[in-house]
Design a protein around this nucleic acid. Structure first.
Lengths: 103, 103
DNA sequence: ACCTCATATCGAAAATATTTGATATGTTAT
DNA sequence: ATAACATATCAAATATTTTCGATATGAGGT
């Protein structure tokens, strides 16, 4: 039950950092390898690696090895999941009862 | 441009904490005042206040004063915005060109 | 086998976020 | 006016995230 919230928060943790949003923006126009991302970002190599791990673990980005390069792209499945999750989390019940603290 | 990413990240920052997801869950079945939330959460009063501020500032939750009580509920407008934002951030261009680092 | 390149991982430092306890603010009741 | 209550704010302590530099891993090329 509490594990569920932790799991869900992971998805949004991927999106709550400016750098990672910038990375997503770069990935929006197609798959890119780490070195191309690095060129367009103002961060170090190990830092990029750290962020990519978080994005991949959230499911929103997927990675693919090709020789010595790692290619990253936005995962359609992962994004769809994230959107559905957000939808579920903010959907209010129809029979809302607000019998709370009135004067 | 960079401000935009900061602004966007604020929305997801609201969702990347387990406690705040638990709060959203409580709000899903209707508007609640802070004291009712406090009863159902394992955190202190000032801590709740801190989290509610983050949720309200993200637009996902809206607050309403009634006498000495503050009532909170999930904002339909705010949730819709968040979902649209997430959709936009993860939507890939159709003309993706992956001419990146091949052997 | 050895070297180079691309990326991942590690531990320590730095930056940010969260909790806590104390106090302030604003509302209602007496 | 005073007291009681609900919530907000503050500063300090604590916890978590992020960065940085160094090193490890793994693939290719010579």
């Amino acid at each position: 039950m509490e594990t569920m919230h932790k799991e869900h928060s992971q998805v949004f943790k991927a999106l709550c950092d400016e750098k990672r949003l910038r990375i997503l923006e770069l990935l929006r126009d197609g798959e890119k390898c780490a070195c191309k991302l690095l060129e367009n970002l103002d961060i170090g190599q190990s830092s990029l690696s750290y962020h990519m791990k978080i994005l991949v673990e959230s499911g929103i980005v997927e990675s693919r090895q090709e020789g010595k390069w790692t290619h990253y792209k936005i995962s359609k499945r992962g994004s769809k999941n994230a959107i559905e999750l957000l939808n579920k989390l903010t959907l209010t019940d129809n029979n809302e009862h607000d019998n709370c603290c009135k004067q």
